[in-house]
Design a protein around this nucleic acid. Structure first.
Length: 898
RNA sequence: AGUCAGUUAGCUCAGUGGUAGAGCACUACCUUGACACGGUAGGGGUCAACAGUUCAAAUCUGUUACUGACUACCA
């Protein structure tokens, strides 16, 4: 078989995914075991407008590793995929295109036509993200793909809305909300981000007190809102203003008179200690307004221009123009005290970055107190969901819930789930599942549906069960029974509040069960300088570029191997090293295949091993298998990757292949050679299975090349499926095959070879020169060295191995001491540099000496001997004995040199 | 302002009480029939500082410094 010298990911990535998908390998139905335990994950639905970024690649890899692992273990696995309609971002994107292509705005074409355009857009571009998911190799079940605006999911949304309304948990009301003047919609608290403005100003305005010469100075960052002032507030304990409480202000520019009131809210140390109160344009002022029964004077329109209430002079002015004009007027009136520079933090719209205006408006809200308690009770009673890592997320989640405010769910958009509420001509509200039902309630057909749609996260909150068939009417399906609650949710920190908490609350409320058992919160991928990636900085890493450059598998295992729950800096060098790892796997397999005549994959070859190196590698393989399964079971992805990397590269390639190379490449055809070839092939095949969840393409490509692989190697649940490594039985380890004795015996052989190599390097022995190795050792060690003579000679590049009870070598020899007191010597007449050899031995002696002194110090500490566990003390004694033994030998060697 | 996290080899990061680890980078040697995307042998860290608990601290506690994240407020 002709195999290229290096792995080309493109070929493997081009074919296998299609085969897997075409053979329905991803669907749970591939599992033929009726008693198989279920395992399910739902993907956090990416935005339909979106394209893959490196954070997705990380999150998706972790989910796919778990899914492939469980599938190979024989679980009935469902990895459910789908996309989110992403209300605001999609609407913005289509609006932008409409503007560009037709120079029109949505109102120009009307709601119906606009929504049609969004659907067309979705159908045209919506598969960008899903094709990218295929590229990543995700083993998701495409037959169950969902979209948040599918009819069934939309029905679930209406159902939930109606039920919550009927219970009084959804209400409509006039509140101060976060208003985006550009998108002209309300935003929830979580959709508002902060932006620091360094060149902000704090304006000090003088308000004349009626019937006096006194002026009260108030400070504000938004002078234009003074047009809507309803009062000035001071702290009741503030001596400076005590006399003024109850008096009246003649509010400049408006001709209105407003009271001076006392309220504890006012901080006497900030600004002037007197605060202008604008109930319609500030959330705190709104609260104060309610307490003091102040009028709510709204002076702005929805686009943040001033309205008629602001007065004729200001009406129609944009908010910042109005600000300038107000300041000008105050200056003209001699009422502008001063302007200070002031660094401030502004709330901005998460999507369009426009400064959000606190705005008095009528909206729909979900009352969170009861919903919140459901989630808090779950945490209290079951400590669920279990966060990985638990610190800090469990606490952050809990504290957030405890302080949760009501959720604004209406959005002034057209793209999304339209609110199932209707109004009659008198303005009465009818909330119902359908228009017909609403008409029945209203006893009239003259109804107008609420124009608003629901927050995108309202439908996302139902994702874990609406995708499995729950629509309010149907509440039990096969999928729900099998796959709900899901096993684990994998997601980023930023949506714990937006999504995780809301899924928990709605899951508990509507299914009576939590939506998932575990929540894995992965870290953020930062750029190579440790900075957050962002479009404006242009420092993002495009996973598709990385795939092209290094291959999908290398990228996947890099991401998994970096994942410990904390943020990490992206480095191309890391992927490069895993690209090299992929190549190493490729070439190890290439070696086995080049010598595979007469061999096949045969599990029996793992149980009938006799030689030390075979028993050793089989023991290593089993320990690796145990450790890997354990690491995955606790979501320790970094650990899992380390385990695999170390086993494959160090144990299998650097030692095992080299140890058995001669035997395997022998020209002599015999059963011994066949057995050795079968064994290495079998071990390799097991290793490929262990690697498969991380590196699906490479392992499939290689596995299919192995002689006589078939679906017989599949897990029992997949015996009839077309042969693929993704359905192979995942090794779980066999305790009978771990062999501590083989491992420690091999360790001493490795030590011997390494020490000889060290001497060779230090003494500059040419690779072609083959010295003799003299070994002095006890009977047990003699046997071990004797039976591994061929391997020792080959790997140490030596001529012969002279084993005796004591050393008898010429003075011109380089020596070393092994664990257990064995000694080695290489006669190097004419090659040895005595000064260098003396230096080398002294260095080793010194190292041992330092360690010995430290340990002796510890041992002479009486309290250590008394209080430390016996085992630790005896370990220490043994180590000291070992050190003394080696030191004595080194001393003798040094003496012999002089 | 509050809460939390981090500070370990030149770089990126593992490591939760018992002799400091990996990858990359670095040095020397090596085209040894799987692989130079390779092999062999090396060098390199008083685990941020200080104090405490302990027979024993990178690991537990406290304080400080720096970095970062989140939450709230900001007239």
């Amino acid at each position: 078989m002709e195999i290229p010298k290096s792995y080309n990911p493109k070929e493997a990535e081009a074919t296998h995914y299609q085969t897997w998908e075409a053979n329905n390998c991803f669907a749970p139905e591939i599992n033929e075991n009726p008693n198989a335990k279920p395992f399910s994950i739902v993907i956090p639905p990416p935005n339909v407008t979106g394209s893959l970024h490196i954070g997705h690649a990380l999150q998706h890899t972790l989910m796919d590793v778990l899914t492939r692992w469980k599938r190979m273990l024989g679980y009935r696995t469902l990895f459910l995929v789908g996309v989110d309609h992403a209300g605001i971002s999609t609407q913005l994107m289509v609006t932008r295109q409409l503007k560009k292509d037709e120079h029109k705005m949505p109102p120009d074409i009307g709601r119906e036509a606009f929504v049609e355009k969004v659907w067309a857009w979705k159908n045209r571009y919506g598969d960008t993200i899903t094709n990218q998911i295929r590229r990543e190799g995700l083993s998701v079940d495409w037959s169950r793909e969902r979209f948040t605006m599918d009819e069934s999911l939309s029905k679930a949304v209406r159902e939930v809305f109606v039920r919550l309304y009927e219970e009084g948990w959804i209400y409509r009301g006039k509140r101060i909300v976060n208003w985006c003047p550009k998108d002209k919609t309300v935003l929830s608290d979580l959709e508002v981000k902060e932006e620091t403005k360094k060149d902000g100003k704090l304006f000090y305005l003088n308000y004349p007190v009626k019937d006096s010469d006194v002026k009260l100075t108030v400070a504000t960052t938004r002078p234009e809102t003074m047009l809507g002032d309803a009062a000035v507030a001071v702290n009741p304990d503030d001596e400076r203003y005590r006399d003024l409480i109850g008096k009246t202000i003649e509010l400049p520019l408006t001709g209105r008179e407003i009271p001076i009131i006392a309220d504890e809210y006012v901080d006497t140390n900030f600004g002037t200690g007197a605060v202008k109160i604008t109930p319609a344009h500030d959330p705190n002022d709104y609260e104060i307004g309610l307490r003091h029964d102040l009028p709510q004077i709204s002076v702005m329109n929805q686009d943040a221009t001033m309205n008629a209430e602001a007065g004729a002079e200001f009406e129609g002015l944009e908010r910042y123009k109005a600000r300038e004009k107000v300041v000008e007027k105050f200056e003209e009136l001699g009422l502008l005290e001063k302007i200070d520079d002031y660094e401030m933090v502004l709330p901005v719209c998460e999507r369009c970055k426009t400064v959000v205006e606190p705005f008095l408006s009528e909206q729909w809200f979900v009352k969170m107190s009861e919903m919140r308690d459901l989630a808090l009770d779950l945490m209290r009673t079951e400590e669920s969901p279990h966060f990985y890592p638990r610190v800090p997320h469990e606490k952050v989640y809990t504290v957030w819930l405890e302080n949760l405010k009501d959720w604004t769910i209406s959005r002034q958009l057209w793209w999304g789930h339209q609110i199932p509420a209707w109004y009659d001509e008198a303005g009465n509200i009818y909330v119902a599942r359908t228009k017909e039902a609403a008409m029945e309630q209203a006893k009239t057909a003259k109804l107008m549906q609420d124009a608003d749609v629901l927050d995108t996260w309202f439908s996302s909150a139902l994702w874990a069960f609406s995708t499995l068939g729950w629509d309010g009417e149907t509440t039990e399906t096969e999928d729900l029974k099998l796959f709900y609650p899901t096993d684990v949710l994998v997601t980023g920190r930023d949506i714990i509040f937006l999504w995780v908490s809301r899924m928990v609350m709605s899951g508990l409320k509507f299914t009576g069960e939590k939506p998932f058992k575990d929540v894995i919160i992965h870290g953020t991928v930062l750029d190579k300088n440790g900075q957050r990636m962002s479009k404006t900085k242009g420092n993002g890493v495009d996973p598709l570029d990385v795939f092209d450059k290094y291959g999908v598998d290398a990228t996947r295992i890099t991401l998994a191997g970096s994942s410990t729950g904390v943020d990490f800096a992206w480095r191309d060098e890391k992927v490069e090293s895993f690209r090299n790892f992929a190549n190493k796997i490729w070439n190890a397999t290439r070696f086995c295949l080049m010598n595979s005549e007469g061999a096949k994959v045969d599990a029996a070859s793992l149980t009938n091993a006799e030689s030390l190196n075979d028993r050793w590698i089989i023991s290593r393989l089993n320990k690796t298998t145990f450790a890997l399964n354990k690491a995955l079971a606790t979501y320790q992805f970094h650990e899992a990757v380390q385990i695999l990397y170390h086993f494959f590269w160090d144990d299998f390639c650097d030692w095992y292949i080299e140890l058995v190379k001669d035997e395997i490449t022998s020209d002599t055809v015999n059963t011994k050679r066949d057995a050795a070839r079968t064994r290495i092939l079998t071990i390799l095949e097991q290793a490929l299975r262990l690697l498969h969840p991380f590196m699906p393409f490479l392992t499939e490509e290689l596995w299919q090349k192995l002689p006589e692989v078939s679906s017989k190697l599949h897990n029992d649940a997949y015996q009839n499926a077309p042969q693929t490594i993704m359905l192979a039985d995942f090794p779980t380890g066999d305790a009978a095959l771990t062999d501590e004795r083989a491992e420690s015996e091999m360790q001493i052989v490795i030590e011997l070879i390494s020490k000889v190599r060290n001497i060779r390097a230090e003494m500059n022995i040419k690779p072609g020169d083959k010295p003799a190795i003299h070994v002095a050792a006890n009977i047990d060690l003699q046997k071990i060295f004797q039976s591994n003579e061929a391997q020792i000679l080959k790997l140490a590049r030596a001529e012969k191995l002279q084993i005796a009870e004591s050393l008898d070598v010429p003075k011109a020899s380089a020596k070393a001491v092994l664990t257990g007191g064995a000694e080695i010597a290489l006669p190097l007449e004419g090659l040895i540099d005595f000064a260098k050899e003396g230096e080398r031995l002294k260095n080793q002696f010194e190292k041992l000496n330092v360690e010995g002194e430290r340990l002796n110090g510890q041992l002479s500490n009486r309290s250590f001997v008394e209080k430390a566990p016996e085992e630790k003390v005896s370990d220490l004694r043994a180590r000291i004995a070992e050190i003394n033994l080696q030191k004595r030998a080194l001393e003798q060697n040094l003496d012999a040199l002089l």
